[in-house]
Design a protein around this nucleic acid. Structure first.
Lengths: 182, 182
DNA sequence: TTCTGATAGTCAACAAAGTGAGTAGGTACG
DNA sequence: CGTACCTACTCACTTTGTTGACTATCAGAA
């Protein structure tokens, strides 16, 4: 239940529908986990069947009905237990890196384009994260926030995501420069 | 064929057995892809069946026989085509980040330990990468290497891996300090 | 001498993750 | 008035990933 724990952690932010989570797993939660809507709906069904989350149907006037999910006490417990369990080593899977590894026999122009695409994506992500950060801080100073906010987990993971995208940007620039110089 | 392309790219380094690849996917290739030996053996069978790699059995005196695989022209072509194809967005999956996200309801001591473990792992990986880098450079200056070496892909991906581990170390330190201060 | 760890794999079964396509209404833009 | 995108979700299928065995040999340490 790897994705499951990520979903439980996301639900700490509060009640959410599958659709909400799909957006989150494409934005804020994407710092450390990505998942498609289909995966999320399936996982939500599983978690509900296991009693770790509870869903309630909200009828809407001008929109399809939705199911809002929230953590149950059992879900909270499961999440706490997870934090205490040993974790598997991270899995990194980046097709762009495979392409760069193979660049010497590949299509240089295509790789250059792929790098540029990644640069743009990283810059966009970083800008999004920056907005999220401002929203979390809500005017407070970072040190103050880290000392006194009730929940600092989301802020810390956000910092990791920002550093990651920053590194992406710098690395891609380096690659492009190297390609240009040869 | 996501893992497949990573294997093909790894085979650019030269002929390798499943066992060699298992080590590589735990060391140098781990910058951008991780896989278990079982996955690799399965993938090697598939790639061989598809004619993208060719295996030859090497009989050994004091060791079990092994199969050494190398790229076929078709494999090279496939790899080149892959570099030109659009790639899916990266997937990040890090259980430690999930734990940190949930730290406010989790077991703080356990998370602290997990962070410390990660710190040690990252330092080890970084040291390993540094050795790899020295080996690749073989005494040459980095700028010179990037301009004149035949293959620079492996060096560039290694740089990405090093930056990633460096960032891990700094982020983990930051988290530990924050935890200590609260 | 027994035991651990490294080399070099193989097999089977299952669980989890990911892809592609489809449904069905709503709103906003030009 | 069309069309494109947003909300909200479902089904079918394929690919990956995980677990836990099992087979062998050799080197070095306890």
């Amino acid at each position: 239940m790897a994705l499951g724990h990520a979903v439980l952690a996301a639900l700490l932010q509060g009640e959410a529908s599958g659709y909400d989570l799909a957006k989150a797993f494409n934005a804020s939660v994407a710092n450390f986990w990505v998942a498609t809507p289909q995966q999320l709906y399936r996982e939500l069904d599983r978690l509900e069947a296991d009693g770790l989350i509870a869903g309630r149907v909200v009828e809407q006037q001008r929109r399809p009905n939705k199911r809002l999910f929230s953590l149950t006490p059992a879900g909270l417990e499961e999440l706490a237990a997870f934090t205490a369990a040993p974790s598997r080593p991270t899995s990194i899977k980046d097709e762009l890196l495979v392409k760069v590894q193979a660049m010497d026999v590949g299509d240089t122009d295509a790789i250059r384009e792929a790098l540029q695409d990644r640069l743009a994506q990283a810059q966009e992500k970083l800008a999004g994260y920056e907005r999220l950060r401002e929203a979390l801080l809500a005017g407070r100073d970072e040190d103050d926030y880290l000392l006194h906010a009730q929940r600092i987990g989301p802020y810390l993971t956000l910092m990791r995501g920002m550093a990651f995208e920053q590194e992406n940007i710098e690395w891609v620039r380096r690659c492009l420069e190297t390609l240009a110089a040869r």
